[in-house]
Design a protein around this nucleic acid. Structure first.
Length: 883
RNA sequence: GGGCGAUUAACUCAGUGGGAGAGUGCUGCCUUCACACGGCAGAAGUCACUGGUUCAAAUCCAGUAUCGCCCACCA
């Protein structure tokens, strides 16, 4: 039974109905009790505040391709979905919303504010997941997780406590990156450095005893209010006299010493450095080495403190900078200033310039955690694709620094540390202690800080599976198979997952890491919401359909390169969708009386075009599998595109039409219909991971058994289908047809005009093939007749061509333009002669003959022979033109 | 300052040692009974530049130029 198909494929309708169908049927769900081998991917959890951008689209399309491929190929495929609570980002969003209502979070208080964030999350947090569904993502939604779920929070506390007890976590007063706007510390990774234009000011500090002065340079003059020393290199001869002196710090009443420190670069400026231990990471270390006081002059709000002095207290740091410069200048301490481009650290969430400030923070000692993670990549337990990223990974891991994990915000996992107000006992535990075990009386106050969001992300591969419980999910699906991600979070996330996986699971979190391209904007910049340069994938889906969009992303996803999405490519693949639809429509018309079993397992074909297309198909299956297996999605897309459009549609279906129309009899119709359906059905299964909706829509209309293409098996190449003879014969036919068509066009013969063509052949095998395929060549060449084995001279004025070393000519009813023909043939001859010259050069080179591999020499000889024949025939043809 | 990557047709990009490719666009012809979101036939490139290795280089090596990214405490 066959059904007729609508004129056009309707993506919105199809996408919605099939997605619902799959969901209801439970095909997305992975069973941990299954006997099948597992294939697991955990999603890089998008921020709850997120909405789908190109990066997500590419990332999730790739994951869905992998998951659908393995699911069809007989694996128990789990794609674990979820979202990330995104501490700072989410808090910022809700704070902004509150601000619009004129509310400050401090007025609400912590508890109420957190409630509000939860409300926000319930209301808007699912948006991104719905958007992922529009892409066709076949996640196991039943297992959806959120990094602040009870279970995951428990895992976070467990990890914190264990790390603390083993001495990996410590607390201390250190200089950290501080965002005055988000009002929290940031890890080094969360600071983005950008080149900015600024000024380098040169300041004069006079010696207390009037015996001289020292000139220092700074881009942040306001920090001089917190200077506690001037440092010079111990070997800097310029300052020998000044050793041991003290200097007046301008604008203050303080005196500061001159110290020696090898940190100073004698080549830079005056070689003297002002030292502000409280506001510069280097100066902090110098301060530690020399036991200098640390004077905090900039507050957590980014304003000047009391310590900065009366005239500056309360000023914003930038207002203060101006005032300090003004005052220094007025009092004669400003030597000068110059334009200066330098790197400035900014908050990765709000772009505010960060301020290095001393505060009490929690840190994780990384070195010992990093070692096993380095080894896991070194010994291949984790493979990174493309490999070039390994180097970057090692570089960072080998120079890893301690991780500041505390954040002074409210939205996140509150640090599981309590202090007893009675005896100051510090309690670190997974669950909130009921009372102080030491004094039993004091009140317990939990640490105010929350953990860096990436702390919980680092546990994602096992926390989502129920750790620390020993769950069936963990046993079945951990370690995961492949992590698909962009390189922008290689350190933030991937490296930390490896470390935590090794530490707490004793095994790698994933066996493969596939690092895909970053989708950039037209200027090559990273697309990001804060930059406002995003192109909306949903618009692409609305405009061209999810299948075309997915296929485009796959076609662009060459390993290790960035993507700049061109919309006309999406349009091109939308046309491919249309092509598949229409080809299917054609094939479906001829399936009366064809059984599903015959389509799935067709008998050996007899007719050459049927043998040929099945041979081609078996090669394509192989290359698509290879491409998927090695993450070459562009090759997979390319192979199948080329096959389906240019081989199946352009050649095969055209050759099949006479059979379809019944011109070649009942048997031919039957065999061809079965073959066409078989190739179509197999192609749909090959295409399914790339184009899930379209393939399901068509597959459901085929008379094959099964409930859905997404649980049908992925094609396996049948080597018995490989048929070199058929491919060679078809090569002759297609070349002849192309030759005829070319002659027609070149000779200006209208398609409607029926003409005669002849072949002059001195090759029996060639002639035999032409004889067998005569009718096809005539039809597709739009020939009235094809004369085989023409003997005698080529008629004067006939247009000629050389095909596979044999001569083809057409007998036009109207005389061809001999001059135009001469020009055409001469041009072709010129080309052949040029090529021949190259080949002759190679083959007359004894070095080439000696050193090149025999097969290469052989190939060149064949080319030479072929070119010689072409040359000869072209010359003859030219001569036969007369004159 | 260190590292990585890019430079191939008008555009967007594949191609990593043996006769330069795709999609789009362009030119010409075709309203042929799956598809004009189509068919057929074409034109189009000093593979950034300079050297080197090799019988053979878009492909490997060195350098140059331009662009981009990542990392880094140089005031």
């Amino acid at each position: 039974m066959t059904s007729s198909m609508p004129k056009h494929f309707n993506p919105p309708e199809s996408e919605k109905s099939w997605y619902d169908f799959w969901l209801k049927a439970g095909y997305f769900h992975a069973d941990e009790k299954s006997a099948l081998d597992p294939y697991t991917i955990v999603i890089p959890p998008p921020n709850v505040t997120g909405s789908l951008h190109m990066g997500h689209a590419l990332n999730n399309t790739i994951q869905d391709i992998l998951i659908r491929y393995r699911r069809m190929d007989g694996y128990e495929a789990l794609w674990m979905p979820g979202t990330d609570h995104a501490g700072i980002a989410t808090q910022n969003v809700v704070e902004k919303e509150l601000a619009d209502q004129g509310v400050d979070r401090h007025h609400l208080g912590r508890e109420q504010f957190v409630d509000r964030v939860w409300e926000w999350k319930e209301k808007y947090g699912g948006v991104i997941l719905e958007q992922l569904q529009r892409l066709g993502s076949s996640c196991d939604w039943v297992r959806e997780r959120f990094t602040m779920d009870e279970g995951l929070s428990r895992a976070v506390r467990e990890v914190f406590v264990r790390l603390y007890r083993e001495g990996f976590i410590y607390q201390g007063d250190y200089i950290t990156n501080w965002c005055p706007r988000c009002h929290t510390a940031l890890s080094d990774l969360e600071v983005e450095h950008h080149e900015r234009k600024g000024k380098l000011y040169h300041l004069r500090y006079p010696a207390v005893d009037g015996s001289g002065e020292v000139v220092v340079a700074t881009t942040r003059p306001e920090t001089m209010l917190g200077d506690t020393a001037v440092a010079v290199h111990p070997e800097d001869e310029r300052y020998e006299d000044l050793h041991g002196r003290t200097f007046n710090l301008p604008l203050t009443h303080r005196e500061i010493p001159l110290i020696n420190d090898t940190f100073c670069n004698m080549e830079f400026g005056t070689g003297a450095v002002k030292v502000t231990p409280a506001h510069d990471p280097n100066d902090f270390e110098i301060g530690e080495r020399h036991d200098l006081p640390k004077i905090t002059v900039i507050s957590l709000e980014g304003t000047m403190t009391h310590e900065a002095g009366e005239s500056y207290e309360g000023l914003d740091r930038y207002a203060c900078r101006e005032k300090v410069v003004h005052d220094l200048n007025e009092q004669g301490f400003l030597v000068g200033s110059e334009d200066y481009e330098h790197s400035v650290g900014q908050c990765y969430r709000c772009q505010t310039v960060i301020e290095p400030i001393i505060s009490r923070q929690w840190f994780v000692r990384m070195k010992d955690l990093a070692q096993p993670a380095i080894e896991a990549v070194e010994d291949g337990r984790i493979q990174i694709y493309p490999e070039t990223w390994k180097k970057t990974y090692y570089e960072w891991m080998n120079n890893i620094r301690d991780w500041c994990i505390s954040r002074q915000i409210w939205w996140g996992h509150r640090i599981p540390v309590w202090t007893c107000t009675g005896c100051e006992e510090i309690l670190v535990d997974v669950d909130e202690p009921v009372s102080c075990p030491k004094c039993g009386t004091g009140e317990l106050h939990q640490e105010d800080d929350v953990l860096d969001t990436w702390f919980s992300s680092a546990l994602w591969p096992f926390s989502t599976m129920g750790w620390p419980e020993d769950t069936g999910t963990l046993r079945k699906f951990y370690p995961t198979s492949c992590l698909v991600t962009g390189f922008d979070i290689l350190f933030f996330w991937v490296a930390r997952m490896i470390m935590m996986g090794m530490k707490f699971m004793g095994d790698v979190p994933f066996r493969h890491v596939y690092i895909h391209a970053l989708v950039r904007d037209a200027d090559g910049h990273k697309m990001s919401k804060s930059r406002g340069n995003v192109i909306d994938p949903l618009v692409m889906i609305d405009k061209y359909g999810a299948d075309a969009f997915r296929f485009t992303l796959a076609a662009f996803a060459a390993m290790g390169r960035d993507v700049r999405l061109a919309e006309d490519r999406v349009e091109g693949y939308r046309n491919f969708v249309n092509k598949i639809w229409n080809a299917s429509k054609l094939v479906l018309q001829y399936l009366d009386g064809v059984e599903g079993d015959q389509i799935i397992d067709p008998p050996m074909a007899k007719e050459i075009q049927n043998r040929w297309i099945r041979s081609r198909l078996s090669f394509v299956i192989g290359s698509v599998r290879d491409a998927f297996d090695s993450y070459r999605f562009n090759d997979a897309a390319g192979s199948i595109y080329q096959f389906f459009w240019h081989e199946f549609c352009d050649w095969y279906l055209e050759l099949a039409k006479p059979s379809f129309y019944g011109d070649k009899g009942e048997d031919s119709l039957k065999e061809t219909a079965i073959t066409a359906a078989n190739v179509l059905e197999t192609s749909l299964r090959l295409l399914h991971p790339l184009m899930p909706f379209l393939t399901e829509e068509i597959w459901q209309r085929l008379p094959v058994k099964g409930d859905s293409i997404m649980i049908a098996s992925f094609p396996v190449a049948d080597t018995a289908d490989r048929d070199i003879e058929a491919e060679e014969s078809m090569g002759v036919a297609t070349d002849l047809i192309t030759g005829v068509r070319n002659l027609r066009t070149e000779s200006g013969i209208k398609p409607s005009e029926r003409i005669r063509a002849s072949v002059v052949s001195d090759d029996d095998a060639f002639s035999e093939i032409v004889r067998v395929l005569k009718k096809d060549i005539e039809r597709l060449g739009r020939l009235e007749s094809l004369e085989l084995d023409h003997v005698g001279p080529i008629p004067e004025g006939a247009a000629t061509a050389v095909v596979k070393g044999q001569v083809l000519f057409i007998n036009p009813e109207t005389e061809v333009d001999a001059e135009a023909e001469r020009v055409r043939l001469s041009k072709e001859l010129e080309k052949v002669v040029a090529e021949l010259k190259k080949v002759n050069g190679k083959l007359s080179n004894s070095q080439f003959l000696q050193k090149a591999p025999p097969e290469v020499v052989e190939k060149n000889r064949a080319i030479q022979a072929d070119l010689n024949i072409q040359k000869g025939k072209l010359q003859e043809n030219l001569e036969s033109l007369g004159k």
